[in-house]
Structures are given as structure tokens and as C-alpha cells.
């Protein structure tokens, strides 16, 4: 069950403020990093929505993000459609694909569900990779960013775009949190907890799972629109399963089922990769060891563990007061 606790709000505010500050004062490369973090964080929120609260872990969120990015890019760069409707179309495409896969795969669970999502994600990757019209592995360029001159902003400026991307995290987090607190979100958590019971209560679990994936995929689609606008060039690598694997790592690293943890995880993962990469070409080993240590230190992810300690201590404090 999801609670937007003060600790979570505080953590989110700190992370977002830190990202904005880093983008503003950290130089040009900091902005690239902040945008990279924002895209990964939005994708992580979308995955945590279904994996952390619905218990449905997927390995196709990268493909969903890529589908939206391709949808946006084809409409804007090939057909000259206005970026705003193109973005909605891309997000809708992602949501439809996610819902369709969930509907087909909802009979399976656990590792079988993961592998089913992997299968559909890889099919999509292969199709786009082989498509000459979409540029194959050469990718597509010439993708425009939103034109925000009507509110006096210029998204071709990397600082303004970075702050826009951080704003994107906040919006996606807000939507995910609101939905999780709604009756729909409570039902999803209920299905995760005990599916037969929810069915006995008259809930159509199949429809709920499908809807949950549609929402999650739409959020992943937002990440896709940001990704396409960030590089203004897209290639099929965006859809490859390792991207989905990386997001899953980020979610677990930050704290599965905490919603804010994955945002923190994304920031830590990207920063760590770049910082370690400055000193050695062998950043994999450092990140790998960190993943292992995180689990061995408690297994709730970085934010999850911190929350556990804090609530544990406050409970102890309460108990000692009562005594």
C-alpha cells in the first residue's frame, strides 16, 4: 500500500532541488547528466508503479519508452506534425502496447511474466532494428524539441531543457502517487497481496492489471518523449532489453515499492557511473560491487533501508515512551 509520507515528500523535494541546482551551477556536462537522470527516473517511476505496487516486474519498459520515442520522432521528423500532439500520440502508442502485452501475458506470473514481457519487448526491438524506413540501426535524426517560446522559454538551451526534465519527474511522480492513493491503486495493491481474494470480492483482476500497465507504459512513454528530444536522434538501442534491465536495477537499488526510492536510485546510478568512469574504464566492477553491498546491507534498496531504520527507530522511541 502506498503512503506519501512526509519523509518521502522531503526526499523527493531534496533530490529534485539538488538536480536543479546541479544543472544550474555544475556546467554543461552536469545538464546532460541531469537530463539523463530525469529520463531514467521517470522510467523508474513507471516501472515501480507496476513492479513495486502491483508485483508485476517487467523487462520491456525500455522497449515501451523506445516505442514512444519512435512514435514522437516519426510524427515530427517524418510527417512534420506539431510536437505537442506528436508527444501525446507517442505516449498513447506506448500505453496501448503496454496494455496489449499485459492483457496477453496476464495469465502468467513471476519469472514467466518477466520473460513474456521480454519476448514482446525484444520483438519490437528486432522489428525497429530491421526497419529500413525507421533508419534501422542507423537511427533517425532531425527530431525537434518542444517550442516553449510562448511562455518565454527556449528548450534548445540545455539548462532550460534540464529543468523542464526535472519538472517532468515531479509531474510523473505526482500522477503515479495520486493514482496509487486512489481506489484503483488500492485495488492494484490488493491484487498483488492476494489475487484470489480480490477476485472473490468481485474485482476483474485481469482488467486491473491491464489498466495498470497502460498507465505505467504511458509514464514510460513520457520518458521516451524526453529521450527523443534530449538527443534529437534515436536508435534502436533504446529498446534493447538491457535498458529495461538497467531500469529494474535502478528501481531495486533505490527501493522497490517506495516510488521516491527509484528516483534517488536513478540519480545515484547515473552519477556513480560517470564519477567512477572518470577514474577508470572499469566502472562496471564498482557498480556491481555496490549492488551486491546494497543487498547484503539489508535488501530494501537505498531509500527503503533508510526508511526502515527511521521508522524502526521512531517505533522504538514510541514504545519506550509507552513503557
Amino acid at each position: 500500500m502506498f503512503h506519501q509520507t512526509p519523509a518521502r515528500s522531503f526526499t523527493l523535494a531534496v533530490v529534485l532541488a539538488a538536480l536543479v541546482a546541479y544543472a544550474t551551477f555544475g556546467g554543461f556536462f552536469a545538464r546532460e547528466i541531469v537530463i539523463e537522470i530525469a529520463i531514467l527516473a521517470i522510467l523508474a517511476i513507471s516501472l515501480d508503479f507496476v513492479a513495486g505496487f502491483g508485483g508485476m516486474v517487467s523487462l520491456f519498459h525500455g522497449a515501451v519508452m523506445g516505442l514512444s520515442a519512435y512514435g514522437y520522432s516519426v510524427l515530427t521528423a517524418k510527417f512534420g506534425i506539431h510536437p505537442i500532439p506528436a508527444a501525446f500520440a507517442g505516449i498513447f502508442l506506448a500505453a496501448s502496447f503496454g496494455a496489449a502485452v499485459a492483457a496477453i501475458a496476464s495469465r502468467t506470473s513471476g519469472i514467466f511474466f518477466i520473460m513474456a514481457t521480454l519476448a514482446f519487448g525484444q520483438m519490437l526491438y528486432t522489428i525497429i532494428f530491421k526497419s529500413r524506413w525507421l533508419g534501422g540501426d542507423d537511427g533517425m535524426g532531425g527530431i525537434p524539441r518542444f517550442d516553449a517560446s510562448w511562455i518565454g522559454l527556449d528548450f534548445n538551451d540545455s539548462l532550460q531543457f534540464a529543468i523542464f526534465a526535472v519538472f517532468g519527474i515531479a509531474v510523473c511522480y505526482g500522477i503515479a502517487a495520486l493514482l496509487l492513493r486512489s481506489a484503483f491503486g488500492r485495488t492494484m495493491c490488493g491484487i498483488h497481496g492476494n489475487e484470489p481474494r480480490m477476485r472473490a470480492l468481485g474485482v476483474s483482476t485481469w482488467k486491473h492489471k491491464t489498466a495498470a500497465f497502460a498507465i505505467s507504459s504511458a509514464i514510460a512513454g513520457v520518458a521516451g518523449v524526453f529521450a527523443a528530444q534530449h538527443t534529437q536522434y534515436i536508435s534502436p538501442e533504446l529498446l534493447f532489453w538491457t535498458v529495461s534491465g538497467e531500469v529494474l536495477i535502478v528501481v531495486i537499488l533505490g527501493g522497490l515499492g517506495t516510488l521516491v526510492g527509484p528516483v534517488l536510485g536513478a540519480a545515484i546510478f547515473v552519477l556513480l557511473k560517470h564519477e567512477v568512469g572518470n577514474y577508470t574504464d572499469h566502472w562496471h566492477i564498482v557498480v556491481g560491487l555496490l549492488l551486491i553491498v546494497t543487498v547484503m546491507a539489508g535488501g530494501r534498496g537505498i531509500y527503503g533501508q533508510a526508511e526502515h531504520w527511521i521508522t524502526g527507530r521512531s517505533r522504538k522511541a514510541r514504545e519506550s515512551l509507552n513503557a
Binding site: 531495486i252 537499488l253 572499469h282 562496471h284 566492477i285 557498480v287 556491481g288 551486491i292 543487498v295 535488501g299
Partner: peptide, 23 residues
């Protein structure tokens, strides 16, 4: 420890072995 922690640790091991081989 649950499947998610197993995924994280063994994924970490993939990274570690990758660099061990490179080194």
C-alpha cells in the same frame, strides 16, 4: 531474500565478472 534481491546481486556479479575478464 526474495527474487528481487537475487536479481540485483547476480546482476552485480555479471558486472564484476565482466570487468574481471577485461582486466
Amino acid at each position: 531474500a526474495g527474487p528481487m534481491n537475487q536479481v540485483l546481486v547476480t546482476f552485480g556479479l555479471i558486472f564484476v565478472f565482466l570487468d574481471i575478464v577485461r582486466l
